[in-house]
Design a protein around this nucleic acid. Structure first.
Length: 581
DNA sequence: GCCGTTTTCGGCCCGACTGTTTTCAGTCG
């Protein structure tokens, strides 16, 4: 996948242009282009080959040419020129909170500062505060920013951010006078990683809210404190912004601070065309200054002639057009989920027995679960060989008889070997109700070989689900090289479901791939890959990701009733058994 | 640099907070 590399190049170009005080619109175009490419559901190369890159919103003639040049030669003439510019060396300075392009360029021009170390030294020596419009407080703030920059690991995983956000919301929400509290921002949109946490509050006593918020035990630093807005840094390193709002503005603010930025820009653009202005205070008629609403998000959308758009869709990736044409999906909800088809037990590397997992799942309101322990290739997990799996299946059948109110399906997560063969013989796989196939080794093969390997595994008539199809670990391991389009097409042909692994480190398939799979008519199985009872709760992140992928309940395998699920699982083998099929 | 039911030229989202200043620049979201 070259998408990330090209997107990073465009972002770097934007940063340098900003340091060079170029047109803000030109800069914005590079940033928008970077984002568009980063979020593509498929390899930018295939898009170029089909001649469709120009159709992507935000990508025009100039960026298309640069993408083609980079794909062909590995770089672009313009990018090379940018890299030679003196400002290029200053990019790390921009990553320091509190340092923007104006400061960075001032430090460079006046004091010759290039590196973060230079800046730290200058700040410590008190050489910054004599600069124009600089003072001792800014100097101090920059030193703190450098500290934060050094500590910082980048974005946080959704699950981690959500837990912190919910802890803060619980604390502030308990206060007297707080009549409403919401987590907004990328958490609300269920984005796979979050940069910071946004919390909105309606309260009569804003001061009290700010007092409590800024003095929580988990706060390591108060970054800003105002009458309506405060920001803190938690010990965990996550920044939390909290705003206190008036009831009549609340919907407009909630919409605004939920984002995404691109969605907001598109909304305001739409408003402008209609002679309206949208801000976090409401929707206004530009000429008469009349206020057309803003107490609820519904009012904001309605003022623009739109139905409510769920937060997970607000990425400016077609949701406004779909809303306009009345074809917004009816997104899958937590309550639609009827079971969990991927979990491990003490038979391999899990911490609970099949029985314990099933009882916990029943408490979640599920109708069925599948126990899917590892096969022998996963040595570290104590994977099962054929004999052990047979015994395990027996144990699962027995547990199923003992536990009422939920069906325990016997399954396995069988490894896909390097040649595309499976780690266990067909006769034992045939005894399973559910077979999940997965790649756990040999991640570094070339794309063509990896794609062949997975496609061959999908051909095996016993396979029902392909687990974590790209193998990525968010922030830790890049996905392996695989032609995801080909995998989706093969899944469709073979009647195999693709998993949306809900484990917080994975969320794999990711949102844009879910959307592509759904559009191709492939079923998505949202599985938690739970290794303990507590992990079953991660389903929410899988559902959130599926919603970001525009999935409806009908697209989700484990939203099916048990009889329908059984039919889906059995169909493959039956079809194969028919002569001539 | 992108884009078009106002336009192929001339637009391109809006506001809070901070610090350094007596009206604003920079950063951030």
């Amino acid at each position: 996948m070259e998408n990330h590399r090209i997107a990073d190049i465009f972002d770097e170009i934007a940063d340098v242009l900003e340091l060079q005080d170029e047109s803000v619109f030109r800069i914005r175009s590079y940033r928008r282009g970077a984002r568009a490419i980063r979020d593509l559901p498929e390899d930018v190369r295939t898009l170029v080959e089909r001649g469709e890159l120009l159709k992507v919103p935000g990508i025009g003639k100039s960026l298309t040419e640069k993408v083609e040049e980079i794909l062909g030669t590995g770089t672009s003439e313009f990018y090379e020129k940018i890299k030679k510019a003196p400002e290029y060396k200053l990019l790390p300075l921009l990553r320091i909170p509190g340092v923007g392009p104006r400061h960075a360029i001032q430090f460079y021009r006046v004091l010759g500062i290039v590196t973060v170390d230079d800046l730290e030294e200058a700040a410590r020596a008190g050489r910054l505060h004599d600069l124009e419009r600089m003072g001792e407080k800014l100097e101090e703030r920059i030193l703190k920013g450098i500290e934060q920059y050094r500590r910082r690991t980048g974005r946080f995983r959704l699950a981690e951010g959500m837990l912190h956000a919910e802890a803060v919301a619980a604390k502030v929400g308990k206060l007297k006078g707080v009549t409403r509290i919401d987590i907004a921002g990328s958490c609300r949109r269920m984005k796979e990683t979050i940069g910071d946490i946004d919390i909105l509050v309606i309260s009569k006593s804003a001061k009290k809210v700010m007092d409590v918020f800024t003095s929580m035990k988990s706060v390591s630093e108060v970054i800003a404190r105002g009458a309506t807005k405060s920001s803190v840094l938690l010990e965990a390193g996550i920044q939390v912004d909290l705003r206190v709002l008036r009831r009549e503005n609340y919907g407009a603010a909630l919409h605004y601070f939920t984002g995404s930025k691109d969605h907001n820009v598109a909304i305001r653009d739409r408003a402008k065309r209609r002679g309206l202005r949208v801000s976090e205070y409401g929707v206004f008629n530009v000429e008469t200054a009349e206020r057309l609403g803003g107490a609820s998000e519904e009012e904001v959308f309605a003022a623009l002639g739109l139905p409510f758009i769920p937060p997970e869709l607000r990425e400016n990736s077609g949701e406004l057009e779909a809303a306009d044409e009345g074809r917004l999906p009816r997104l899958v909800e937590a309550g639609d989920i009827k079971g969990d088809l991927h979990m491990h037990t003490t038979a391999t590397d899990g911490r609970n027995t099949p029985r314990e997992m099933a009882v916990a799942a029943r408490r979640l309101g599920y109708r069925y679960v599948a126990i899917t322990d590892h096969s022998k290739a996963v040595r570290v997990a104590g994977g099962l060989d054929a004999e052990e799996l047979r015994a395990h299946i027996e144990a699962i059948r027995k547990a199923n008889k003992e536990v009422d109110g939920i069906e325990i399906l016997a399954g396995v997560e069988v490894d896909i070997m390097k040649d595309g063969g499976l780690d266990l013989p067909d006769d034992v796989l045939r005894q399973c109700d559910v077979v999940i196939a997965a790649v756990h080794s040999g991640f570094n093969m070339p794309e063509a070989r990896m794609t062949r390997r997975i496609l061959k595994a999908l051909e095996n008539e016993n396979v029902n689900i392909l687990a974590h199809p790209t193998g990525r670990l968010i922030g830790e391991r890049e996905p392996y090289e695989v032609d995801i389009e080909a995998v989706i097409a093969a899944a469709r042909k073979c009647g195999v479901a693709l998993e949306l692994n809900a484990f917080p480190d994975r969320l794999d398939l990711k949102d844009v791939h879910c959307r592509a799979a759904r559009e191709a008519g492939v079923k998505i199985s949202i599985g938690t890959d739970a290794h303990a009872v507590a992990h079953l709760a991660n389903m929410r992140y899988g559902v959130g990701t599926a919603r970001r992928g525009w999935c409806e309940a009908g697209d989700i395998l484990n939203a099916m009733t048990l009889p329908k699920l059984r039919k889906f699982l059995a169909r493959r083998r039956r079809d194969r058994a028919k002569p001539g099929v």
